[in-house]
């Protein structure tokens, strides 16, 4: 099954290797990995998606915590959460085919961020299936995809929750926060 881990790690050289090496050792392929800044100074936040057996998640989480530079690990599992991916797609267009792409972009609520006489660049955020939907449609169209760049998934739990990540921040537990989770925007 697919597991999603969110971890806070120290922002120093070599930490990503340590995290990646753990999965390499367990012979688990990392499907997606995004790393970037977080609300906590000196800590990066990463979202890691991998496919492994259901029982593996306990061991992965426990093993991640054993890494000295890993501060917090949250196993998202089936919890309500928002997952997004960013894609940049460069498409070859002509004056004749351009409007066709514009329409698709409109339907998928994506944006055109670069435009030349021969190509345009689409920026799109959304869930995996939506991005793949646009890619499929583009492939089926007359416009050739020149470059495709996907960020990998970023995941955040909805509302307040009781994971160690938020507890460490002094957040209140679910019970204490009434109707904290407002399911807005696109649903997954």
């Amino acid at each position: 099954m697919v597991h999603t881990f969110v971890a806070y790690v120290e922002d120093i050289p070599g930490v990503l290797t340590r995290v990646a090496s753990l999965f390499r050792r367990l012979n688990i392929n990392i499907q997606s990995l995004t790393v970037g800044g977080s609300e906590r100074p000196g800590l990066s936040r990463l979202t890691l998606v991998c496919e492994s057996s259901g029982e593996a998640s306990h061991r992965i989480r426990a093993s991640l915590f054993k890494l000295e530079n890993v501060v917090d690990v949250d196993d998202i599992a089936q919890a309500p959460s928002v997952t997004r991916e960013l894609a940049l797609i460069k498409v070859a267009v002509t004056a004749q085919t351009r409007s066709q792409v514009f329409e698709l972009v409109e339907v998928f609520r994506a944006r055109i961020v670069d435009l030349t006489s021969e190509s345009l660049m689409i920026e799109m955020t959304g869930v995996e299936s939506k991005i793949e939907g646009l890619i499929e449609i583009l492939k089926a169209s007359d416009c050739r995809i020149l470059e495709l760049c996907r960020s990998g998934k970023m995941t955040m739990r909805r509302g307040h929750h009781t994971s160690g990540v938020l507890r460490a921040l002094g957040a209140k537990s679910n019970e204490e926060v009434v109707a904290g989770a407002i399911a807005g925007g696109e649903s997954d």
């Binding site: 029982e55 306990h58 061991r59 426990a62 093993s63 915590f65 054993k66």
Partner: peptide
């Protein structure tokens, strides 16, 4: 003492 060993 090592949580990663339990149920491994």
């Amino acid at each position: 003492i090592d949580p990663a060993e339990v149920n491994k």
